[in-house]
Simulated scan of single mutants.
Amino acid sequence: MPSRPAERTDEAAWHAPGPQAELWLDYDPAARELPGFALGRRVLSGPAGAEVTGLHRAGVRCLRLTEPVRLCADAPPASARALMLLREATAQGLAVLWRAVCTDGCAARRRFHHLYPPERVAGAPEEVVADWRATYFPSKCVVRRGPGFAEVRDRRFGTLELFTIDEPGHLEQLDALAEGVGTDLLPDAVRRDLTEAGLIAEQAGRAWFLPMRVRRWPFPSLTV
């Protein structure tokens, strides 16, 4: 019984408004200063994929997250949702201005190094951000869906790692994992296998899928 109020609080926090972002119509810092290029601030409370698709169709090419994003396992719901938004924005080719916070050393493990690099990581050595920026390239960790399977191509840790997901029970969870699913609702085998492969993050009582969908294939494609 004592755990139930906490569960309700976490659920409410997960669905609270946010994150908030400043929006621009151009990548170039100089262009963003011109009249008409700034679109102001917006609270992005919907599903990450739908929010970013809507922004891209509206001409948004750069956004700034107004609050720092915690990377660690104890990150609050707002940070977990911001990271999923970053995943979708990176997949769409948007530039993202953001600040990260890390106090447990996770930033140096490259788990999130497929996301658009942050401006700084509070609590981490400067070389962590330098490494993130130096090694980043588009589509560094992507998932492609096919009939009856999904393929993940992952270069976050230097060499190419390939994962094929073809078990029906695993495939059934991918759409839910894209927006975060309660860890207690995730089948044990799915949670174990995707955790061992380094393909999910668990924060705020939710598990969410780290690889981004292929939206823009980089050139040359062999880099992926």
Rank of each mutant, 00 (worst) to 15 (best):
Arg81His: 08
Arg87Ile: 12
Ala80Trp: 10
Leu162Ala: 04
Leu160Met: 11
Pro168Leu: 15
Val101Lys: 06
Val60His: 00
Phe209Gly: 06
Gly169Gln: 12
Val43His: 03
Ala75Gly: 14
Ala78Val: 03
Phe219Ile: 04
Ala122Phe: 13
Trp132Asp: 12
Ser45Trp: 06
Val224Phe: 02
Arg110Val: 01
Ser45Asp: 08
Glu151Cys: 09
Val43Cys: 10
Leu65Trp: 07
Val181Ser: 14
Ala189Tyr: 05
Arg110Thr: 05
Pro2Glu: 03
Ile200Arg: 08
Met1Lys: 06
Leu34Asn: 04
Arg61Cys: 05
Trp132His: 15
His15Asp: 07
Ala82Arg: 04
Pro220Glu: 08
Phe219Thr: 10
Phe112Asn: 04
Arg42Met: 07
Pro17Val: 07
Arg81Glu: 02
Arg213Met: 12
Gly198Ser: 09
Cys106Asp: 02
Leu97Gln: 11
Val142Thr: 15
Gly123Glu: 11
Met84Tyr: 08
Glu67His: 09
Arg4Asp: 09
Arg133Ala: 14
Thr90Trp: 09
Arg216Pro: 01
Arg206Trp: 08
Glu67Val: 06
Gln203Phe: 10
Leu39Phe: 00
Val190Gly: 11
Gln203Asn: 05
Glu196Ile: 07
Gly158Leu: 03
Gln20Met: 04
Leu194Trp: 12
Leu199Arg: 06
Arg61Asp: 02
Tyr27Trp: 12
Ala197Asp: 13
Gly40Tyr: 02
Ala207Cys: 12
Arg144Lys: 14
Tyr27Ala: 13
Phe157Val: 00
His114Leu: 02
Trp132Val: 12
Val69Ser: 06
Thr90Val: 07
Ala107Glu: 01
Ala124Val: 09
Gly18Pro: 06
Arg192Asp: 15
Arg215Leu: 14
Val129Ala: 13
Gly18Ile: 04
Ala122Lys: 12
Ser139Glu: 11
Leu97Glu: 15
Gly93Thr: 09
Pro29Met: 10
Arg216Asp: 03
Thr53Gln: 13
Ala82Val: 01
Ala48Phe: 08
Gln20Tyr: 00
Gly123Phe: 10
Gly158Met: 03
Leu174Tyr: 15
Phe137Lys: 00
Gly158Lys: 03
Thr164Met: 14
Glu172Thr: 13
Ser139His: 04
Leu85Ala: 03
Tyr27Ile: 10
Lys140Asp: 01
Leu63Phe: 02
Met212Leu: 15
Ala31Asn: 08
Arg61Val: 02
Val152His: 03
Phe209Ser: 09
Trp132Ala: 11
Thr183Glu: 15
Asp184Asn: 14
Ala108Trp: 10
Phe149Thr: 04
Ala107Tyr: 10
Cys106Trp: 02
Arg133Phe: 06
Pro19Ala: 00
Ala89Thr: 04
Pro187Lys: 15
His113Thr: 01
Arg120Pro: 01
Glu179Lys: 08
Glu51Met: 07
Ala38Met: 00
Arg156Asn: 06
Leu210Lys: 10
Asp193Asn: 13
Gly54Pro: 06
Gly105Asn: 06
Asp26Arg: 13
Pro5Val: 00
Asp131Ile: 01
Pro47Val: 07
Val129Cys: 12
Gly49Trp: 08
Val224Leu: 14
Arg155Lys: 13
Ala16Gln: 02
Phe137Trp: 00
Phe37Cys: 04
Phe163Arg: 14
Leu162Asn: 05
Val69Gln: 08
Gly49Lys: 11
Val121Ser: 11
